[in-house]
Design a protein around this nucleic acid. Structure first.
Lengths: 104, 104
DNA sequence: ACTTTAGTAAACCATTCGGTTTTGTATTTA
DNA sequence: TAAATACAAAACCGAATGGTTTACTAAAGT
């Protein structure tokens, strides 16, 4: 289950996050995905490769088309990482004012 | 409260995620942070700048030192974004086997 | 059979990234 | 006051990013 590419780096790009949003809940052809962006199809193809390399998307050949499906299990790692700090951002100590005072 | 830099891009780098881990719960000097990494002080300084630009860290001048404090509220955006897909990765539809079948 | 469609591959490009070293500048300390 | 400390700034560098265009290939329609 080892991803060759870091999922944090994969979701760093807004276009790729948008692709994930598009694919959540529905399988789409690469072309259909590309139609949703103002960039060339090869550009989208590259993004898709990065998403597949970290396991966020699975692409299945289907005739001359590529069926892209999001595999969002890979996002659990991200959620867990961020969640571990929830206790900090929930505490009232995390206000900007507090930080500034604390450094006095 | 708009960050000039994207928090998703900020956490894409493993060093910066490590810095966040270091600063969670404790304020440290820039130098102290730098001692935890095998890279030059200016390199850490650059990372810190990126972290402050997206609001993940607040740096306060204190004499000749810089006191760095994590401000993890900025991570809520990440957690929320990932969380919205939990329903997908929790469903049994998200197994690899299922994806492959679905594309038949 | 020919043409269109869906996609990959390759070459290219400007910009950003992540690091370095070197230098400069306040601020402490001795 | 001189030396050490804690940083920032700048110049530089190779590699990665995100995009392009221009072939090329394979599958589907006509």
């Amino acid at each position: 289950m080892k991803a060759r590419r870091d999922v944090f780096q994969a979701i760093a790009d807004p276009t790729r996050r948008a692709i994930i949003g598009l694919l959540a809940g529905q399988t789409l052809t690469l072309n259909t995905v590309a139609e949703n962006f103002r960039m060339s199809q090869p550009a989208v193809s590259k993004h898709m490769r990065i998403l597949t390399e970290c396991g966020l998307v699975v692409v299945v050949k289907h005739g001359r088309q590529r069926h892209c499906t999001a595999r969002l299990t890979a996002l659990e790692e991200v959620a867990k990482w961020a969640e571990q700090y929830r206790v900090f951002w929930n505490s009232r100590l995390d206000t900007l004012q507090n930080l500034l005072n604390k450094n006095e």
